[in-house]
């Protein structure tokens, strides 16, 4: 589980790859990557608030995009930095359904070392693929 930012892509924006041994883990690592673009010290996000996020989509990669968008939403609407702790993903009635528990706290300019704001999660070259070791997501964020 983890993520890496890609140097060779997205001149004006930020591209990353996130890995996980299973689908749940790759959703969690991609979520952390988004928050890590906004603040450098991810480990400083304390679990003081929680939000339940429920989403559904026919496409699994778009389900991931919608989850990441929700994290961007909470950052602006409630000034909350959230880390996804538990995530359940199931497919029924031709749709993927997600229920995630996200925990975090309000942005603290002293403790949270700011990097850059994420405007949106783009569809550009969005990929969610199975690999030999599990799953990998490729995401480009608009900065």
């Amino acid at each position: 589980m983890g993520h890496r930012f890609i140097e060779e892509e997205a001149t004006a924006d930020i591209a990353f790859e996130a890995d996980g041994k299973d689908i749940h883990e790759v959703f969690r690592s991609a979520s952390d990557a988004v928050i890590n673009v906004m603040i450098d010290n991810l480990e400083e996000v304390q679990s003081r608030e929680s939000r339940v996020i429920q989403l559904s989509n026919e496409a699994l990669d778009l389900l991931l995009l919608e989850l990441l968008q929700m994290l961007v939403y909470y950052k602006d609407a409630e000034q909350l930095l959230l880390r996804v702790k538990d995530v359940e993903i199931e497919k029924f009635n031709k749709e993927w359904h997600l229920r995630a528990m996200a925990e975090g706290e309000h942005i603290d300019r002293e403790r949270h070392h700011q990097h850059v704001d994420v405007k949106a999660v783009t569809l550009h070259d969005l990929r969610l693929e199975q690999t030999d070791g599990g799953w990998r997501a490729h995401v480009v964020l608009d900065i």
């Binding site: 890609i6 140097e7 060779e8 892509e9 001149t11 924006d13 930020i14 850059v116 900065i143």
Partner: peptide
């Protein structure tokens, strides 16, 4: 117009 990615510039 940028010529270099943010990730590279930061390094």
């Amino acid at each position: 117009g940028r010529t270099m990615s943010r990730t590279r510039a930061r390094k």
